[in-house]
């Protein structure tokens, strides 16, 4: 990963100097001097700010929704590259306006203020996609993939083992902590509705009251809106300061869609998304058994 920064900078410099893009979204070192943060570079002479290491947690694809109509280059890890595919498939991006600088990713570490993290992020421990599924420029040597579906869904399976009462108690305790800051939504590359149902006044689906039932509704509806769409960057869980394990909800639905349709979002930008497709006579394969 040592030469990544240099290569990213070279691509960024070339793209900006040639006027192919007017902004490169990448990473720079944050104010703690250790951990990375998103960086927006507009001029070729500023590309020296760009860096890459195992503190680059953010899914930068979420920023592309602000840049409609403006040619932009974005630095993506393989999981973030899936978000590019998702947004292309859903007609939220124009391919010719996005330059994808894809990285081969050996995994990102847990963050701690002012310190290098040690443990790999949960999503990286079970990652089965180290090479970006879409890119214009590739940085790094492709890694041989080792699919590990059982591990990926292990936390979901462990929760499903519990009784409905235990699961209810577990989720209620999580919902009681939620402060509805909407950081989960704001960081999500798949949450791009112009007006979120949670903000709608007419009809008012949710409203401003914050309590465990309303919070539960918020997280459930959001998870359903991401079913078959969540690309598993886990940014929602990372940004949650109240420690709510949102990826459990997303993984559960991902597993359901995977089981029923053999589909994982973001692998490419062509396969029709199963929950936006209707085939007469199809067997939905939903067993209705295990809750989350």
């Amino acid at each position: 990963m040592k030469d990544y920064a240099e290569k990213i900078q070279a691509h960024a410099r070339e793209l900006l100097a040639a006027g192919k893009v007017d902004c490169v979204i990448g990473y720079e070192t944050g104010s703690d001097g250790v951990n990375a943060r998103p960086a927006f570079v507009y001029r070729a002479e500023d590309v020296g700010r760009l860096t890459f290491d195992d503190t680059c947690t953010h899914d930068l694809v979420t920023y592309l929704r602000n840049r409609k109509g403006k040619a932009t280059a974005v630095v993506v890890k393989p999981c973030d590259a899936r978000a590019v595919n998702l947004l292309l498939l859903e007609h939220q991006l124009q391919r010719e306006q996005v330059v994808v600088i894809g990285l081969v990713c050996p995994g990102i570490k847990e963050r701690a203020w002012g310190q290098k993290g040690e443990a790999l992020l949960g999503k990286c421990q079970v990652c089965a996609m180290h090479n970006p599924p879409i890119y214009d420029f590739l940085v790094g040597q492709p890694i041989a993939e080792e699919p590990s579906p059982d591990q990926r869904y292990a936390p979901v399976a462990a929760l499903a083992e519990k009784s409905p009462e235990e699961r209810l108690a577990f989720w209620q305790a999580q919902q009681e902590r939620c402060i509805r800051c909407y950081a989960c939504r704001q960081t999500c590359p798949g949450c791009y509705c112009t007006e979120c149902f949670a903000d709608r006044l007419d009809p008012q689906w949710l409203g401003i009251r914050v309590d465990a039932p309303a919070n539960g509704m918020w997280h459930t509806i959001r998870a359903f809106h991401l079913a078959g769409r969540c690309i598993g960057c886990d940014e929602c869980q990372r940004v949650c300061i109240m420690g709510i394990p949102l990826s459990l909800l997303n993984r559960k639905l991902e597993q359901k869609v995977d089981d029923a349709f053999k589909f994982r979002p973001g692998q490419d930008a062509q396969t029709p998304p199963p929950l936006a497709t209707f085939n007469p006579g199809e067997n939905l394969g939903v067993d209705g058994g295990h809750g989350c």
């Binding site: 998103p38 927006f40 704001q186 940004v239």
Partner: peptide, 9 residues
């Protein structure tokens, strides 16, 4: 503001 995601945290 470029990098702000406009949450309320």
């Amino acid at each position: 503001a470029d990098r702000c995601i406009h949450c309320n945290l």
